[in-house]
Simulated assay, not measured.
Amino acid sequence: MGHMLTISNSIISNNRTSVEAYVSEPAGEPKGGLIVIHEVWGLVDHTKDVADRFAAEGYLVLVPDLLAETAMTPELATELQATLSDPEQRSKVQPKLRELMAPLHAPGFAERTLASLQACFEHLYAIPALAGRVAVSGFCFGGTYSFSLAVSEPRLRAAVPFYGHADLPVEQLRHIACPVLAFYGEKDAALVDKLPELTERMDEAGIGFASVVYPGTGHAFFNDTNAWTYDADASEDAWQRTLGFLAKSFAA
């Protein structure tokens, strides 16, 4: 089991950044450091469990609480996920969801979020035992910000976004200095339809980009607490691919 830690004293863009993060540590010498970025539901138990699973594989993991300024709670997240999966109830809950998610679209949110992620990166990067081996992985909201952190931090060793958006021009993608492995569910049309274009832009930018699309699955297929989206086979395959990708990236 992990614990909460305040990551602070990192100067990013002339602002002092402080963020609460869940920390999960391996039993022995760490293979590397990993930032895990939660879904749009915030720092719920599922994300902490994913961090603990990575720690059991030998990684020192930080999960920043990036949505602390919203009114989202783990209980509300569970309720909303269930309601959104019911076609008859979905329209009723969408206004509430838009209200809760409004802070994500407020001016400065993206900059503050990246500053928090950068603070977590600097914290891990400064740990001698990690020897500069730091990667990022994230889900949904976290998948999108995994791409963003890869663009802004050239010292990252790997990025593993799960069903994240990367609507970025080639000029920005060229700043990525690490390999990227991205996962998608076939039914997640909003992302899968754009994947060929993203692949072309990644190729043009000279990025080592690989993607896996799992047939018959949709968004959030990795979330085993969401009975409406979870796919055990796709989840296990993505997990094993992620572990292999991290091991290869940290060994490079």
Score class of each variant (00 low, 15 high):
residue 242 T to Y: 06
residue 96 K to F: 10
residue 216 G to L: 15
residue 160 V to P: 05
residue 13 S to H: 14
residue 29 E to I: 07
residue 224 D to T: 08
residue 162 F to G: 01
residue 223 N to L: 02
residue 74 P to A: 06
residue 143 G to P: 10
residue 61 V to H: 09
residue 128 P to F: 03
residue 165 H to F: 15
residue 35 I to A: 00
residue 168 L to E: 12
residue 49 D to I: 14
residue 134 V to P: 11
residue 115 A to Q: 04
residue 199 T to R: 15
residue 204 E to W: 01
residue 126 A to S: 15
residue 12 I to D: 07
residue 73 T to Y: 11
residue 103 P to V: 11
residue 147 F to P: 08
residue 147 F to A: 09
residue 83 T to L: 15
residue 46 H to W: 12
residue 182 A to T: 08
residue 169 P to K: 05
residue 51 A to S: 14
residue 8 S to P: 07
residue 198 L to Y: 14
residue 17 T to I: 15
residue 153 E to S: 08
residue 99 E to N: 09
residue 55 A to M: 05
residue 148 S to D: 12
residue 85 S to G: 14
residue 226 N to F: 00
residue 52 D to S: 01
residue 44 V to R: 11
residue 69 E to W: 00
residue 162 F to Q: 06
residue 11 I to L: 14
residue 8 S to A: 13
residue 178 C to M: 03
residue 32 G to N: 09
residue 188 D to W: 01
residue 198 L to G: 08
residue 238 A to K: 02
residue 6 T to P: 06
residue 227 A to K: 14
residue 105 H to P: 04
residue 59 Y to H: 03
residue 62 L to Q: 06
residue 161 P to I: 04
residue 185 G to V: 07
residue 101 M to N: 14
residue 229 T to D: 04
residue 189 A to F: 07
residue 247 A to K: 07
residue 68 A to M: 04
residue 201 R to V: 04
residue 237 D to T: 13
residue 34 L to A: 10
residue 180 V to Y: 13
residue 191 L to Y: 07
residue 115 A to R: 02
residue 143 G to C: 08
residue 175 H to Y: 06
residue 183 F to I: 06
residue 20 E to V: 03
residue 70 T to I: 11
residue 204 E to S: 02
residue 183 F to Q: 06
residue 11 I to R: 13
residue 17 T to A: 05
residue 222 F to N: 04
residue 62 L to M: 07
residue 123 H to T: 13
residue 213 V to S: 12
residue 75 E to V: 10
residue 74 P to K: 05
residue 165 H to W: 08
residue 86 D to R: 10
residue 160 V to A: 15
residue 30 P to Y: 05
residue 14 N to E: 15
residue 102 A to I: 01
residue 81 Q to S: 12
residue 73 T to M: 09
residue 63 V to W: 05
residue 169 P to E: 12
residue 104 L to I: 06
residue 52 D to R: 00
residue 173 L to I: 01
residue 161 P to N: 07
residue 22 Y to R: 00
residue 29 E to M: 07
residue 146 S to L: 02
residue 107 P to F: 09
residue 220 A to S: 15
residue 126 A to G: 12
residue 29 E to Y: 03
residue 205 A to P: 05
residue 204 E to K: 10
residue 47 T to H: 13
residue 195 L to M: 07
residue 223 N to T: 01
residue 165 H to M: 11
residue 225 T to S: 00
residue 143 G to H: 09
residue 26 P to A: 04
residue 131 A to F: 03
residue 144 T to S: 15
residue 234 A to N: 09
residue 222 F to Q: 10
residue 151 V to P: 00
residue 55 A to Q: 01
residue 147 F to D: 11
residue 42 G to N: 01
residue 157 R to E: 10
residue 137 S to W: 00
residue 231 D to R: 00
residue 4 M to L: 09
residue 74 P to N: 09
residue 26 P to Q: 02
residue 252 A to M: 14
residue 176 I to G: 14
residue 126 A to I: 08
residue 2 G to H: 13
residue 92 K to E: 14
residue 185 G to H: 06
residue 101 M to I: 06
residue 180 V to M: 12
